[in-house]
């Protein structure tokens, strides 16, 4: 009899645990659906081809968001061009070359601490260093450099983890064939770590697209199309912030939000596809 009882009680615990876990995961999913659908319901009706292709008029009350989309893409692309090589190189160094030492621990601690600093602090630093000290003015370049600093820790951390997760047996196999460390890194480790590195880059892109404070301080909020990276521009997030906080137009705020979400989705999707094409397909 006793045996039966014990089994029953652990069964019940199992059921309860499963139920709770299920509830919490459903809860998360519901929140996501609520947010996205709320924005789409309120914003989608105001989106048209004109809205995408027209420049804003009357501070964004009328017209579209073309120049804002262009500025956003500029900043995203430029930040990733700066951050990806630096971040990946640093993570390769940390994961493969650096010997355990106090210096290495300081670098690791620094990277982790930097990842936790509020973005407004990066904005302030970018404002005083890039905008004024280096005299880059409010510009796409100042914004991109500031955001590069902001997303580097995330990219380094994720890439380092991805590189460390490459099985030791691959390294040994390659080195035992007489490959140098660099050859092993370039041809075996990095290709295998690419999906993880990509995750870091996508997280970085997500933060760049979503950032408003740091961009407002460094790239400005000019509504024109920037004709070079030395000109100011306004990203979607900044535009959204301005439209909402200054009460310019609720319709256009939501419409901008829809485009912001769509842009993030498109960037993630195309980055995934692109990397799959280049790295994964070649290895089949």
């Amino acid at each position: 009899m006793n045996d039966i009882k014990i089994i029953t009680s652990s069964r019940i615990k199992e059921r309860v645990a499963f139920f709770l876990l299920w509830i919490f995961s459903i809860f998360t999913a519901i929140i996501l659906v609520l947010i996205v659908s709320d924005i789409i319901i309120k914003g989608a009706p105001h989106i048209s081809l004109d809205f995408l292709l027209e420049e804003p008029r009357k501070m964004g009350k009328e017209g579209g968001v073309f120049s804002v989309i262009v500025s956003t893409i500029y900043i995203v692309v430029l930040s990733i061009i700066f951050a990806a090589p630096i971040g990946v190189a640093a993570s390769v160094y940390l994961a493969e070359y650096a010997k355990e030492s106090t210096m290495l621990n300081i670098i690791r601690f620094g990277t982790e601490a930097l990842a936790g600093i509020p973005s407004i602090i990066y904005g302030l630093f970018g404002y005083s260093f890039f905008v004024f000290f280096l005299d880059l003015k409010y510009s796409i370049l100042s914004g991109a450099l500031t955001l590069t600093l902001m997303i580097l820790p995330t990219i380094i951390k994720t890439s380092e983890e991805a590189i460390k997760a490459v099985p030791k047996s691959y390294r040994e196999g390659s080195l035992a064939l007489g490959a140098t460390k660099l050859q092993t890194i370039r041809k075996i480790i990095i290709p295998d770590a690419i999906p993880g590195i990509l995750t870091g880059l996508i997280l970085g892109i997500g933060r760049v697209v979503g950032e408003s404070a740091a961009v407002l301080y460094t790239a400005g909020s000019s509504l024109g199309i920037p004709d070079s990276i030395f000109r100011p521009g306004r990203t979607l997030s900044v535009h959204l912030y301005t439209l909402a906080s200054e009460g310019i137009s609720i319709e256009n705020t939501y419409a901008t939000a829809v485009i912001l979400i769509a842009l993030v989705f498109i960037i993630n999707f195309s980055a995934n596809t692109l990397i799959n094409r280049i790295f994964i397909a070649r290895r089949r």
Binding site: P167, S169, Y170, E172, G173, S174, I188, D192, R283
Partner: peptide, 8 residues
Amino acid sequence: FQKPNPFP
């Protein structure tokens, strides 16, 4: 090696 370790 002990465990087959072909590259992916």
